[in-house]
Simulated scan of single mutants.
Amino acid sequence: MGKVFDGIDDNLKAWIEAQPMWFVATAPLSGDGHVNMSPRGHDSFSVLGANRVGWVDYTGSGVETIAHLRENGRVCLMFNSFDSRPRIVRLHGTGVVAMPGEAAFYELTALHPEHPSTRAVVIVDVTRVSDSCGWGVPVMEMSGERDLLRLQAEKKGVDGMSQYRTERNYESIDGLPGLPT
Rank of each mutant, 00 (worst) to 15 (best):
A98K: 02
S81P: 09
P113L: 12
S132Y: 02
G33N: 02
R150L: 13
I16W: 01
P180H: 08
R150P: 00
Q152W: 11
S132T: 15
P39T: 05
T26F: 00
G136F: 11
G144P: 07
N80E: 12
W135K: 12
T65G: 05
S143K: 14
E171Y: 04
P100R: 08
P28Y: 00
S84C: 03
G33S: 05
L91W: 08
W15F: 09
A18P: 00
W15Q: 03
V53Y: 11
L48D: 04
T94R: 15
S30W: 00
G31V: 02
N51L: 05
V75Y: 06
H92L: 14
A110F: 04
T166Y: 07
V139M: 13
A14Q: 10
H92I: 03
N169F: 01
S46M: 08
G33E: 02
G33V: 01
D147W: 14
E114L: 11
M37N: 11
N80G: 12
T109E: 06
S143F: 12
L12P: 02
S130W: 03
G49N: 05
S46W: 12
T181C: 01
T127L: 08
E64Q: 15
P28L: 01
A153K: 02
F79Q: 10
H34I: 10
L29H: 00
N36E: 03
T26S: 10
T59D: 05
H42E: 11
R128T: 14
W15K: 07
K13Y: 01
C133F: 12
A120E: 02
M99V: 05
V96Y: 00
V53G: 07
A67K: 10
T59V: 15
P177C: 08
S162P: 00
M161T: 08
A103T: 12
L148F: 15
Q163W: 06
Q19H: 02
D83P: 00
A67V: 11
D10R: 09
L179S: 04
A103H: 04
A50S: 15
A103M: 06
P180A: 08
H68L: 10
R74Q: 15
K155D: 13
N80S: 13
L148V: 14
P180K: 09
T59M: 15
E17H: 01
I16C: 01
V129A: 04
P86I: 09
R87H: 10
I66K: 08
N36C: 05
K13L: 02
H68T: 07
W135N: 11
G157I: 06
F79K: 10
L149I: 02
V124K: 01
S172A: 07
V89M: 13
Y58G: 09
W135T: 14
R165N: 14
R146P: 02
N36A: 09
T26C: 04
V75T: 15
S81H: 09
V56M: 08
R146F: 10
D57P: 06
P100E: 07
V97M: 08
S117N: 11
T109V: 15
G31H: 04
F45Q: 03
S81V: 05
F82P: 00
L149T: 13
L48M: 09
L91M: 13
P177S: 07
G95F: 07
P86D: 10
D57A: 09
I123K: 00
D57I: 06
H34S: 06
A98W: 07
V158L: 13
S130C: 09
P116K: 07
R165W: 05
H68R: 11
K155V: 01
L151P: 00
G178K: 08
